[in-house]
């Protein structure tokens, strides 16, 4: 089956005071139950192999989060929680009543905020090394001030460094779009660095069936962080990906896809 992703832009006009006028850009492909993929901190490089694999079974939406790519970030929006509020507008506009949400890194944090805001609107939640809970932020590598040559090491284990440039290009290849995505990211997660002081105290309200996926070699957020999430979400499943870093679907796409498939049985999926 050949699946060609469509790139679409939606202008949401809002309804005056409470709902903002906002522009969303997203990729869409596949047939089946809707699945929304929420990208990592510096944006999705494009339509990737893991999106393609998911699109074999799901109708996959990959939006640029507000502030990233062509999606606008309103001035009042400053936190992943605010992004979740904006995403619910997109869900309404696309008539996504109860999608599966898969979020990586920043997208995982936004996914958790979505499920806390509107549990009835999320069928299942997959959190792939989500930001939001951090053991000691001063020990987490500083993604905003460092020698740019070191950035790949903060995200990928040594064995996967050759794959890093798609996500963190060499300095000479930084495009305006990449710089813009970094500018958006610092607005959202600068302080407290990559986490929230209240999220931990909210998570007991999260009742959506949840899968937590973590790379065993994550250099940014050590795998012990997976236990922070499952401690707050006693019913969540946890899958560790050997040899993988902060974006485990880069090193081991198949294992991550299998974990998602196992978590969402065939009767809940589309396709054959």
């Amino acid at each position: 089956m050949s699946i060609a992703p469509q790139q679409e832009t939606l202008e949401l006009h809002g309804d005056g005071a409470e709902r903002a006028a906002i522009q969303f850009c997203y990729h869409r492909a596949g047939q089946g139950p809707p699945l929304v993929w929420l990208h990592w901190l510096w944006g999705e490089p494009g339509w990737m192999d893991y999106h393609q694999r998911l699109a074999e079974r799901f109708q996959v939406y990959v939006p640029d989060l507000p502030g990233y790519g062509q999606s606008a970030l309103p001035e009042w929006a400053k936190t992943p929680h605010d992004l979740a509020v904006l995403l619910l507008q997109l869900f309404d506009a696309l008539s996504l009543q109860r999608p599966i949400v898969v979020g990586s890194c920043l997208g995982g944090w936004v996914g958790a905020e979505l499920a806390l805001l509107r549990p009835e609107r999320i069928a299942k939640l997959v959190l792939i090394s989500p930001l939001g809970l951090v053991q000691d932020w001063t020990k987490v590598p500083n993604l905003f001030y460092t020698d740019p040559a070191r950035l790949p090491q903060y995200l990928f284990p040594d064995a996967a460094l050759e794959k890093a440039s798609v996500y963190v290009p060499e300095l000479s290849n930084w495009t305006d779009a990449f710089i813009n995505n970094r500018n958006a990211s610092i607005r959202l997660v600068f302080d407290p660095y990559l986490h929230s002081r209240s999220l931990r105290h909210h998570l007991h309200l999260l009742t959506t069936p949840t899968l937590v996926v973590w790379g065993e070699q994550d250099p940014l957020l050590a795998p012990a962080h997976a236990a922070l999430w499952t401690a707050s979400l006693p019913h969540a499943h946890r899958v560790m990906i050997p040899g993988a870093g902060h974006l485990p679907y880069v090193e081991d796409c198949e294992t991550v896809i299998q974990a998602i498939h196992t978590f969402i049985p065939p009767q809940e999926r589309g396709g054959a």
């Binding site: 905003f144 740019p148 710089i179 500018n183 990211s185 610092i186 607005r187």
Partner: peptide, 11 residues
């Protein structure tokens, strides 16, 4: 390196 700190200046 300082100039690469995101957010402070426009591109």
């Amino acid at each position: 390196t300082v100039s690469l700190i995101p957010g402070h200046m426009s591109v």
